[in-house]
Amino acid sequence: MYEFEYRKPASLDQAVAMLDEDAKILAGGQSLLPTMKMRLASPGALVDLAAIPGLSGITVAGNTVEIGAMTRHAEVAASKEVAEAIPALADLAGKIGDRQVRNRGTIGGSLANNDPAADYPAAVLGLGATVHTNKRAIAADDFFQGLFETALGEDEIITKVSFPLPEAAAYEKFVQPASRFALVGVFVARTGSGVRVAVTGAGPGVFRATALETALGGSFTPAALDNVEIAADGLNNDLHGSAEYRAHLVTVLAKRAVAAAR
């Protein structure tokens, strides 16, 4: 790991002031630190959000689940409130990485990183959640912008994510056996304003499978997807699976998710 300067702000304002051009934000560090160890990233400074109050915690109120940016995956997975309000979300959090990673990794870090095979982006896009920052609220449909790209500005920090309660939802993940990342992961949600299907792992970034959404809008049953195919064009093609295989998995997993949705 190359040298860097360590900064530990006590407030969001301080954090923003510490974010110069060469600085990176440190949340749980479960993606950033391995990347730095492999010298794939060499930020001049790390701004550690750990000491900023109010960034962590879960609130369920009315029709919304709010999760603070620094809330760890293990906390979401173990939260009775989340399991009751949006079981698919607690289930998804429990499927991220391994126990040790879930004990450190945070929702804000996962979203800001936007790894193309990460799990949380599928829940945020699938549920039509809102990402809140120190500056504004960003709709999920506008937040994710492709491979490791998001709508976040240079001096923008995620503070929390708010998830509207769906009528029913589920996440199905086919893991890449070595990394345990999603080879393909599909989040299906039936909401008051229609069905949303978000796919991770299959493409260069999380995306909505509109053909599946339309079919499920007519009938929210696995059978509704019997003759619906996803185009393999533009999907990931690597030693773990061809684009065609991933396209096939999207429909298979979407069917399982519809069957499991509650």
Binding site: Y6, K8, L26, G29, Q30, L33, P34, K37, L46, D48, A50, A74, D98, R99, Q100, V101, N103, R104
Partner: peptide, 21 residues
């Protein structure tokens, strides 16, 4: 996971955490 230790009671990979954290 060979480097797993408990930090505030939780299992973490100590090779993926800075000492300052």
């Amino acid at each position: 996971g060979a480097c797993t230790i408990l930090v505030n009671g939780d299992a973490v990979k100590s090779c993926t955490m800075l000492a300052v954290q």
